[in-house]
Design a protein around this nucleic acid. Structure first.
Lengths: 340, 340
DNA sequence: CTGAAAGCGCTTACAG
DNA sequence: CTGAAAGCGCTTACAG
């Protein structure tokens, strides 16, 4: 690679000290009282030669990298990639760069990612945590690493966090199904104790209870979604109780469900109603379109970045942790039409 | 954050010099001839206190970051996220970390990403280039930054590159359509001069010519796919020539096409045959499943990492640039059934 | 066999 | 108003 010019070279060329160059480059010229002429001269020259400071050296010295690490379940998922897009834009405006990692819901992998990025001295973390990550999170907390959890959190750990009202959103979605005439509503979800799945299940159980309906829950392990989801959903549909609606706890479970319904030649919504938690770009392509609970991604992203920057800027040092809950809403399509 | 322990602290604690500690930590103990006992002692102690070297300092000193930058069109796209997964695994095995960026086919954004990561001193780049990026690529080349292009390349620039045989894959896919009895095969593609789109179009035009069929091409600008794709595809289907098969140049164009076919109530493959270049997880969910040209992602990833590491390890300094072309294959589903 | 010292390219108290 | 110098935490030629 080409030899880069350093602040020393510039100082030598201009016959001034590196202190002066550094001060000017960091906009502290006024503050310190350097002459405008000198300021001009340095700025003009550095621009002319296209000088770029060595960020490694800068970071080593200042202890700041201006990098934020965003850890999501899967960056290819529409919900997470949408959050990533917004967060990146907001962070960029504030002078930060975002670096991504996909946890794939694997605690060991996630733990490694965290330690990897910590070793790389990122200035803060935004994490959609997996299960069994309490130790790592507590660790970050105890080292005062800026950290915001989103999508899910640990009830037992006091953190800044941003989540959707999983309980209420699910409650309302199911209530809508009931109003449409569906009764035997099954809930297909992950075998998971993560808070968001716990709350979605809670909302479902509560609304069923309130309406005197019998709940029916099918849980599927995250790791075995690819192999087992279809089989398990088929089982669910072949029990004595005739399920007339399916609520899927995540969008990828919905995709699996649709595959099964197609296989079994079950018509939506004539034979069965369908709702997905979280939208997906293809849901509008199906016949009929699939109704989904949608999270207010832009708002969540704003809150996330705001909370993290408060920590990075030490404005959060004295305040209590903030736990923000934003409202979800329903994107109604035809998969939840009036039950005939 | 907690005060980290440095190599100096370790040396002080053990009453030896930092040179010795550094040498041992870098496995040069034998090479230099340090006693096994000392070696043991240092290793044991550093492990005990969980010492982690400051990578910023290390990189500043060595000029290496052990980070590779992977720039793709869209990390949420199945093809690119699949490449990313394989490349990350292979790179990790070799001690490298992968950092991602999505170009969204925007040259200005891509140019910024490149300069951003260059400023961060990544050890090399793997890029699926956008149009109008020649200057940046030449720039990297002239600075001898390790670089591999994939998915597309610039015929006029001599680089290490890995691409699928776009021309032949398309040729064979269309040939299959013709064998199935389709005649009025339209080609829906991007308004783009990128090599991969150019070659796919070339394959289509050639096979149509060979079979004495009249080509029909619809081009759509990448930026306006969301707004215009559906309208343009509808236009294509409402001309005098009755199109009986559609070949889509990318998987997201296929999704748009399927939306249109659904709107117009056109049955696949009864009324029209469909093939997509590049697969998509939902293509098997549609009725009928959508036939796709698939790229050998694992193989491509291996080649990409191999070429890049040859450059990083200076094994490529003397050799010629390698231009690798891998074979695509057809994943046949029901959207290309025998024409009735 | 082991250590003192220079240097990677910055920033920032401190001195004048 | 401006500069010499220390130091961030490493690695590595050089000396002994």
């Amino acid at each position: 690679m080409k030899k880069k010019v350093s602040i020393k070279d510039i100082a030598a060329h201009l016959n001034i000290s590196i202190t002066t160059v550094s001060l000017i480059l960091n906009g502290k010229s006024k503050e310190v009282g350097l002459s405008d002429i000198l300021n001009e001269k340095v700025l003009k020259y550095t621009k002319e030669i296209g000088y770029k400071p060595n960020l490694l050296a800068k970071s080593l010295r200042t202890g700041k990298t201006k990098i934020i690490c965003l850890l999501v379940e899967n960056i290819a998922d529409p919900f997470f990639s949408s959050i990533a897009g917004f967060v990146e834009e907001l962070a960029t405006q504030r002078g930060y760069k975002i670096i991504y990692g996909s946890t794939k819901n694997d605690p060991a992998k996630t733990s490694e990612l965290i330690s990897l990025f910590k070793d790389r001295h990122v200035d803060g973390f935004i994490i959609a945590p997996t299960e069994e990550l309490e130790a790592d999170i507590n660790n970050l907390l105890s080292e005062h690493v800026p950290l915001v959890l989103f999508d899910r959190y640990y009830p037992a750990i006091d953190t800044d966090q941003v989540v959707v009202d999983n309980f209420d959103s699910t409650y309302k979605a199911i209530q809508m199904l009931i109003a449409q005439g569906y009764k035997n509503i099954a809930f297909v979800t992950l075998e998971s104790d993560q808070s968001q799945m716990h709350d979605r299940l809670g909302g479902y159980l509560k609304v069923m209870e309130v309406h005197g309906l019998t709940p029916c829950v099918q849980k599927i392990a995250y790791e075995s979604v690819e192999q087992d989801a279809c089989t398990l959903i088929k089982q669910l549909l072949s029990t004595d109780i005739p399920v007339d609606a399916l609520f899927f706890g995540t969008n990828y479970l919905t995709l699996k469900g649709l595959e099964v319904l197609k296989d079994l030649d079950i018509a939506v919504p004539r034979d069965i109603g369908v709702i997905s938690f979280d939208d997906h770009e293809v849901f509008k392509l199906f016949t009929p379109g699939i109704t989904a609970v949608v999270q207010p991604v832009a708002l969540m992203s704003e809150k996330i970045v705001e909370l993290l920057l408060e920590q990075i800027d030490h404005k959060a040092d004295v305040r209590q942790k903030k736990k923000i809950v934003v409202p979800g809403f329903l994107n109604v399509r035809n998969s939840t039409g009036q039950k005939k």
